[in-house]
Design a protein around this nucleic acid. Structure first.
Lengths: 221, 221
DNA sequence: GACGTCAAGTTGACAACGTCAATCTGCCGC
DNA sequence: GCGGCAGATTGACGTTGTCAACTTGACGTC
């Protein structure tokens, strides 16, 4: 009822102003048509409201990534397109992405509702990586690889949001794709340098020698 | 004189509280031993003060990265160690890194003192990448490659700061190194897939065939 | 040595913010 | 008809960034 209206008002404020400083309890209440303290009947405090706003956006992010992964032909394409979908979502919803992923770190012991949402995001990527590991191309713990790969995706969005004046390429879509491929190819190369190819997967074994030859000059890197 | 004392007080507040919300003009003024509006004689407003605080930290970041690059044996090691030094700095100074790199994006037309500092950071990485391009290992515009690689480094720090509860590996140093290598190897692979090896550099040409063989399975990625 | 000038700091205040205690209102069940 | 109670309002408190007006003190000039 009113809770829903408050959330809608908050979301509208965020979209219109494009700046989270416009999201004040007074503004939200006024837009909803109630007085300020009425908001406290539905949200413990301001941060709870913000968390609730983020949660709804988060779900659409989850489905966007999942759909991109599922629509792909093979695991590698799934990883690639999932990563691009993730970044695209951040670019398209900068304010929400800021709130959810670039907010103040939680004080130890403080309840942190976004925590599970962020962990779920990590799990999405790990899920897309797992088949690639099973194919013998990526090596190591899927969650570890996901964590490492997500640094590139998150960094791309975070940097673009906070520093729009950087010399970003005109073709944003291609750049996102490059970042996704950099992370995928780099992770594959890193795994092969560290662990070698999987012995039980013929296709991986077949590429081992040629990769080792190529990667020779990167041994230190 | 007083300006310097105010900056020191602000920096001390940041370090002690570990939270930028502790940085209020009143607290800074009280710690300096003057009244609040006296700060306005030396800084236009609060954001100018914050920018000034960041600037001093920024310079030490610059020297840390530069020294790491210069101390390396070859360009690739320089890139690797420079990247790790950059990330290490962010991990060691989370509050300052947050203020400088994860702050609110500048409104168009708004003066943004950190802008040149952030651009200088990009230039550092481009400078470390340029020799690798000349060696024929990385392909493309150094600044473009720097921008793409920095996404991984920035993302690593930004994610670690904002989401400390993520399943980060125990050996942080090794993880930073992995991220740096992922970006380096991934960028190299991406360049070779896109542009092929440099024809005029024999060592690059020599590895082309073996890399192409390895990368065959990643054509789509 | 008295004077004007001007930078530097203080006083007092304003609006906006998050938050809360106390109060009012309208509806449901007995 | 009446008690109880969820839900909204009133009024206020403390804190924040910011500013106008005033005071202070040092310096150079006649």
């Amino acid at each position: 009822m009113l809770r829903e209206e408050i959330l809608r008002a908050a979301e509208a404020l965020l979209d219109e102003a494009g700046d989270e400083s416009a999201l004040t309890l007074r503004a939200v209440a006024a837009r909803t048509g109630v007085t300020t303290p009425a908001v406290y009947r539905h949200f413990a405090d301001k941060s709870a409201l913000i968390a609730a706003v983020c949660m709804r956006v988060w779900e659409s992010l989850g489905t966007a990534v999942r759909e991109a992964i599922e629509a792909a032909d093979d695991p590698f394409q799934g990883l690639r397109h999932g990563a691009v979908a993730y970044m695209r979502f951040g670019i398209d919803h900068p304010v929400h992405y800021r709130l959810l992923m670039m907010g103040r770190p939680p004080r130890p012991g403080e309840p942190h509702p976004e925590r599970e949402a962020a962990m779920a995001c990590l799990e999405y990527m790990a899920g897309a990586i797992r088949p690639c590991v099973e194919m013998g191309v990526l090596r190591g713990d899927p969650q570890h690889i996901a964590l490492r790969s997500i640094t590139a995706m998150h960094g791309c969005i975070a940097l673009a949001i906070a520093h729009p004046y950087f010399p970003w390429p005109e073709d944003a879509e291609q750049f996102l794709d490059e970042v996704a491929r950099m992370a995928g190819l780099g992770s594959a190369a890193l795994g092969w340098l560290t662990s070698g190819p999987r012995r039980d997967v013929p296709s991986a074994e077949a590429y081992a020698a040629s990769f080792q030859a190529w990667a020779g000059q990167f041994q230190g890197s």
